[in-house]
Amino acid sequence: MNDSMQAVVPALFTVLEKPLHLNYAQVGWISFALNITSSVLQPAVGLYTDRASKPYLMPFGMAMSLLGMVGIALAPSFWVVLLAVLLIGFGSAIFHPEGSRVVYFAAGNKLGFAQSVYQVGGNVGSSLAPLMTLFVFVPLGQIGALWGTLFAAAAIVVLLAVAPWYKKQLVDWRPPGEDDPAKRIYPDTVLPRKRVAVAMTLLVFIVFGRSWYYSGISNYYQFFLINHYGLSAKQAQIPLFLFLLAGVVGTFFGGVWADRIGMKKIIVLSIAGAVPFSLVLPHLPLVWIYPTIAALGFILMSSFSVAVVYAQHLMPTQVGMASGLTTGLAFGMGAIGAVVLGKAADLFGMTSIMQGIAFLPLIGLLALQLPSDRQRTDIKRMVKYGAKG
């Protein structure tokens, strides 16, 4: 529901352009405002909630998004739209780190599986944008954004039901005499702090590179197909759809496999394993593009949720911060990277950009330097029995 509301914003661009007299620069600022608030602010929110988790913060964030949807539907000008989008972005930034913590508590011994389900929900919500444009916003116009408030209302009802359970988890995991649930007793970490810092830096850089490549394909590969192969705009959507759909499937199975063989192995196999497919993709005959780009999407995105769980593994006392760094900051920077790639395409041509970004998955080889996740005792088990003596 949350990511569906985020998808409403770009889906409304073509609808808002004429009645509000928006130029392309203003459209770009709207997109930038959404990404900078919903993604880049997540680590700050995660840091705050790690210190003082508040179960009812999630429905509050969703209420902000609901107000944002109303604002977009009734906005008379660009500035009101921008303010409404900021509300949606802030609401999303509040929701995601706390949502990841809820998933962490609910996962049991299947952290990869649980996080993959959570991320698949977001990916499916984001994929609704074209359908909403076709069936809601084009027929109804700007006022059709009010339908988005149904997503927010449904999410608030669910979160109000989840909040008491979440509050109980925080209490149950709190050691006797500890007033702040965010200061639950964990082993400090088996790894030295310096090594954790280096590993997190590498992980964020790896996710950053993957996000740049993902943004390049999802935003610009359709133009490459039109220019290089002579496809129509509709025909160019088919390979892109295969890439995105396979990515959703890969996100799910990557989490499942990580529980079995380890998170580091999945990260290495996913990002580095995508290299052969990314390198050949700009040079293939058209008939080979369809299976190749589907395989690329599946492999590349199989580590999407795993990177979040691995970050939580490195920072078990700062689950919100870890989630914000991987799903927020790094992925948000990838969205900003799309702007850079667009400018570069204007200067050097789309073919050169597609051939250039093909090397970005090589960054995944840095994952070989990450510490193994199979050498540590299960944190939850240590907390559960350690807190009780």
Rank of each mutant, 00 (worst) to 15 (best):
M58Q: 12
P43K: 04
V383P: 08
N123F: 15
G262R: 02
V171P: 00
V340S: 08
A129Q: 05
I206Q: 00
L131I: 14
I267P: 01
F359A: 07
N23R: 01
A274I: 06
I267V: 08
A63D: 09
P192E: 00
G356A: 11
V9D: 09
V319I: 14
F253W: 10
T351Y: 02
Q26S: 07
S126V: 06
S4Y: 01
E178C: 00
P55T: 12
I289S: 06
A129T: 08
E17L: 00
G89S: 11
F60C: 08
G262H: 03
A155V: 03
Y48A: 05
G250I: 11
P55W: 04
N2Q: 11
L269Q: 12
L347W: 08
L16C: 05
P76N: 13
V319Q: 12
A199R: 00
V256D: 01
L160E: 09
L244F: 15
A129H: 09
K264G: 06
K234F: 07
G334A: 07
G177R: 00
M321R: 09
N2T: 10
L74P: 01
I30C: 02
L20Y: 01
V81F: 12
A233V: 12
V117I: 13
V81G: 09
A107P: 15
S305G: 08
I289W: 06
F252Q: 10
W29M: 03
N109I: 06
I289F: 05
L16F: 05
I156V: 11
S215Y: 14
D378F: 07
L370H: 10
R193E: 06
W165L: 01
V248E: 06
Q312G: 10
G46K: 01
L366I: 04
V120I: 10
M263F: 05
F105N: 12
Y186G: 06
N109K: 12
L360I: 15
V204F: 05
S53E: 13
I206A: 02
P276Q: 06
T292S: 07
W257V: 13
S218N: 09
F135A: 14
V81Q: 10
A294C: 07
L281C: 05
F95R: 03
S352V: 10
N123D: 14
L366E: 01
M350K: 05
L87V: 07
A7W: 02
S39N: 06
G386L: 09
V158A: 14
L67F: 13
A197P: 05
V117R: 03
A311F: 04
M62K: 10
K384R: 08
Q318Y: 12
L67C: 13
I261T: 04
Q235M: 09
P19C: 00
P19S: 00
Q42S: 07
F208W: 12
T251S: 09
Y48C: 02
I336V: 15
A295H: 05
A367M: 02
L245F: 14
G320C: 06
V136C: 04
Q237R: 11
P192L: 00
V198L: 12
W288T: 11
N123E: 12
A44Y: 11
D3P: 01
Q222C: 00
M350C: 05
G389S: 06
L170R: 04
F224Y: 15
P43M: 01
V268G: 02
G342Y: 05
P130K: 15
N219M: 14
V80F: 15
V319S: 08
A367I: 08
